[in-house]
Design a protein around this nucleic acid. Structure first.
Lengths: 148, 148
DNA sequence: TTGCAATAATAAGCCCTGTTATTATATACC
DNA sequence: GGTATATAATAACAGGGCTTATTATTGCAA
């Protein structure tokens, strides 16, 4: 087959990410910044390590994302009264206003990508992707065991 | 639904890319470097603009990828006799040896990700992903029209 | 033939990401 | 109480990506 399943998944995933990136850019955000803000709204008042885990980046990466968001007033770091090592993250008034438009972008994107697919087809796609994810995750955790 | 189709596609795509990256790293290559070498072998003797298009990065990005690959002797730039602006890219003896292992990695990865899926399920997944890709591509080209 | 738009490659500047290492603090165990 | 281990955040360094702008060169068109 010309376009195999691996390239297809890789390409459609990239296409989705790129489209998301373009759309949130209209709000002045990058993709990962948008993901962090959504996560901040859904699970408020946690430390940076928590959000790094949520949005699946390394802690150091999150540090720099937060650096930039703090500079431009989208989030604030607050000392954790219970752990002097940690900083809790908070939305600001500025960013609280943007969460709603952000969610509309997410919903719109999912609607657009799945246009023309029946409910059954969506379910099938979801199930197959879950299976693929499980296969790939299994590989990775096997490797973790081998290394540690 | 908890895990919607957008997150699933995004996650499985990222997982696939990350796994690919880890496996080719065993050959001393990054993911995008590996993709370029495979492309170089399949469509030899073209200029940088051509390969940028093939692996879907901007020309400036390809420039720097080639910078690093040239430094470590994986590719070489050759002046194009027909166009003094352009440089053609060539595999080297060193990189020609690695194309075969690289292809085995690609095949192995696709096999692993699709493990446990029947032939029918693979076809279904491919068809649905093609549909999703088409939807997303349509959105992007619409935007291009609007902007240009 | 001149003059201008398109093309090939690259530079500068920014953001995202990871690996490895460091500092400060917390916690668990002896 | 004191030591060892783990955790939170960050720094340094490197690869990769994009947007915008610049320099050569090409090719078409007046």
């Amino acid at each position: 087959m010309q376009t195999n399943i691996g390239y297809l998944l890789s390409d459609s995933g990239r296409l989705l990410r790129r489209t998301f990136d373009e759309r949130v850019r209209s709000l002045g955000l990058t993709a990962v910044q948008a993901r962090l803000l959504l996560s901040l709204e859904k699970f408020p008042d946690n430390n940076q390590a928590f959000y790094a885990e949520r949005i699946e980046v390394e802690p150091i990466t999150l540090t720099r994302i937060v650096d930039r968001l703090e500079e431009t007033g989208w989030v604030e770091r607050v000392a954790d009264p219970a752990d002097r090592r940690a900083r809790l993250l908070h939305l600001t008034d500025k960013s609280r206003e943007i969460v709603e438009p952000l969610r509309r972008i997410v919903d719109g994107l999912v609607a657009d990508m799945a246009e023309g697919l029946s409910a059954d087809e969506r379910d099938t796609l979801a199930a197959l992707l879950e299976k693929v994810s499980a296969n790939l995750s299994a590989d990775r955790s096997m490797k973790d065991v081998a290394n540690g």
